[in-house]
C-alpha cells in the first residue's frame, strides 16, 4: 500500500505547535514587559550583574547551532547523509555547550545567594526581585526547551541511522529543525532583555 505523505500538512502541524510555544513564552514576556515598565531603574541595576560575556558567548553558540542545523537539513536534502549526520552532532555539541555555560551562570548566581525567595534577594528592591524571578523562570523554561530540542535532534539522528529519515523523506528532520530554531528565536530575545538592558 502506498501512503502519500502530506509534507505540507506535517510542516503545518509543526508550525501550529510552534505557535503554542511562542504564546507559552509570550505570557512570560508579558510579565517581563509589565515589570520593566514598573521598575526600569531596578531592572537596569540588576541587569548589570549578569555576565555579558557569558551571555554573548551563549548567543553565538546557539546561533551557530541553528546554522549547523540548517546546514544539516540542506545536506540531507542534497543526499549527503554522512555530512548531515556530522552536522547534527555539531548542533548537539552546541546545545550541550549552551547548557554547560548556563549551568555555570546559574550556579554562580545561586552561590551568591541570588535565587527566588532567597533572603539575599528579598533584601533588595522589589524590581530586582522581579528581575531575577523572571530571569530564572524564563531562562529555566528556555533551558528545558534546549534539553527537549536536544532530545528531538538525537531522535532524528537515530532515525537517520536506521534509514527512516532519508534524502527522500526528511520531514522529521525538518520539523526537528523548526523546533530547534524556535529555541534559538526565544534566546535571541532573552539575551538583550536580560543581559543588555543595563
Amino acid at each position: 500500500m502506498t501512503v502519500v505523505k502530506d509534507y505540507t500538512g506535517a510542516k503545518l502541524g509543526m508550525w501550529l505547535f510552534l505557535f503554542t510555544e511562542i504564546l507559552l513564552f509570550g505570557g512570560l514576556f508579558l510579565l517581563y514587559a509589565a515589570y520593566l515598565h514598573r521598575y526600569p531603574a531596578d531592572f537596569h541595576l540588576a541587569g548589570k550583574e549578569l555576565n555579558v560575556v557569558l551571555g554573548a558567548t551563549n548567543t553565538v553558540v546557539l546561533i551557530s547551532s541553528s546554522w549547523l542545523m540548517a546546514l544539516s537539513i540542506s545536506a540531507l536534502q542534497q543526499g549527503r547523509v554522512e555530512q548531515s549526520k556530522k552536522l547534527l552532532l555539531g548542533t548537539l555539541a552546541c546545545a550541550g555547550m549552551f547548557l554547560v555555560i548556563k549551568y555555570f551562570e546559574w550556579s554562580a548566581k545561586i552561590h551568591h545567594g541570588i535565587y527566588p525567595d532567597s533572603p539575599e534577594l528579598l533584601a533588595r528592591p522589589a524590581g530586582e526581585v522581579m528581575f531575577f524571578g523572571l530571569y530564572y523562570l524564563m531562562t529555566g523554561l528556555h533551558g528545558l526547551h534546549v534539553i527537549l530540542g536536544g532530545g528531538v535532534i538525537t531522535y532524528a539522528y537515530v532515525l537517520i541511522l536506521k534509514g527512516r529519515v532519508t534524502p527522500q523523506d526528511f520531514v522529521f528532520l525538518e520539523n526537528a529543525g523548526l523546533y530547534w530554531h524556535l529555541v534559538d528565536l526565544v534566546w535571541i530575545y532573552l539575551f538583550p532583555l536580560f543581559y543588555l538592558i543595563a
Binding site: L31, Y39, P116, D117, L122, P125, A126, G127, V129, M130, G133, L134, Y136, L137
Partner: peptide
C-alpha cells in the same frame, strides 16, 4: 519556589 511575581509583598 515563592518567586513572588504576583505577590505584592515582594513587588
Amino acid at each position: 519556589l515563592g518567586v513572588g511575581l504576583f505577590d505584592p509583598a515582594k513587588g
